[in-house]
Simulated assay, not measured.
Amino acid sequence: MMTTLMPVIRELIRKTNPLLEHELSAEFAKSRLYGTKFCADQVATMDFRTFARKRPPEEEPSIAVALRIDESASMSAFGRLDAAKQAAVALYEFCKGCGIPIMVYGDTADRSKLEQMSVYSYVDFESKDANEKYALMNIQARSNNRDGMALRIISERLLNAPQKSKLIISISDGQPKAMPDYSGEKAAYDMKDTLQEFRRKGIQFLAAAIGQDKEAIRELYGAENTLDITDLKQLPARLVQVIARFM
């Protein structure tokens, strides 16, 4: 898979790195011995660290990305799961190549009465495992999906990231369904309520649609927040636009 995707990934990194190199952070790091801004509130510490300076991009990237993959049984149809795996690998390699923190989570529901909600951490911000990317091959279609709760769990995790911009990309077929009655209007209301709540907290959401799922995804996330990833050859240009948009 990597052999096939590497030309796409390299092109994506080549186009995006100039954007990151010229990015200026608006955040100031306090407790400095020198800097461009005097902080009167630091004088009482008596450690002479009374200045602040802007954090350069290489010190703290301004964007963190979370990829959420719906692992419901319906994702096995029409090549959705293969496309999701390829998108996960491409996005992971792209973020690593650009120094952007990334986490990749999968989720399903109702695997058993005792396991009503299941979340799988394939890649995490805090992981030190150099081989973590191989876990992406464990992404698979499993059971049902409770999208609202999955987005809530990932959003709460992403809120702890120090980066200024926080982006969640969700790959699903737009068919939330879980026991006993999580479907239709009830599921759609739950999802929209979750999106609204965490957008207020500063998280941006983008839904990646695969082919015939576009209309269902647009209804839930909004047309302006829907990305068509059916043609992976177009993925580099589309993701460059996304990263530039959310920086």
Rank of each mutant, 00 (worst) to 15 (best):
C95V: 00
R49E: 09
R49A: 09
A178N: 03
V242T: 15
I217A: 11
M137D: 15
F246D: 01
G211I: 01
A141K: 03
G97A: 10
L114A: 13
F205R: 02
Y105P: 00
D41L: 06
I168E: 02
A26E: 14
K128P: 08
I100V: 14
S72Q: 00
N131P: 00
E215G: 08
I102C: 04
A161V: 05
E197F: 10
A209K: 07
E115C: 09
Q163I: 04
V8H: 12
Q140N: 13
A64L: 06
L5P: 10
L114I: 11
Q212Y: 09
A83Q: 04
L232K: 04
F48M: 14
R146V: 02
Q140S: 14
G202N: 06
T4V: 09
N138S: 15
R111W: 03
A237G: 12
I100L: 14
F38Q: 04
Y92S: 00
A109F: 00
P7G: 02
F78P: 04
M46T: 08
M75C: 09
Y105V: 07
P176L: 02
T194D: 01
F125D: 02
A150K: 05
G79M: 05
R32A: 07
A26M: 12
K177Y: 12
R218K: 14
P101W: 01
E156N: 02
M117C: 12
P176C: 01
T36I: 01
P180W: 06
D193G: 02
A87M: 11
K133M: 10
K96M: 11
E27D: 14
R55D: 05
A178L: 12
S172R: 06
L158I: 02
D82L: 11
D147H: 12
K85G: 05
Q234H: 08
R218M: 14
I168R: 03
A64F: 08
A216P: 08
G174C: 03
F38S: 03
M149L: 15
S62G: 13
A77G: 09
G222A: 02
V104L: 00
D173S: 07
A29L: 14
S74I: 05
A90N: 04
A216V: 06
Q196G: 05
K30F: 07
R146P: 06
K233Q: 12
D228L: 07
R32L: 13
T230V: 06
D82F: 10
Y120E: 04
M75K: 02
V242S: 09
S183Y: 15
K96S: 08
M46Y: 13
A209I: 08
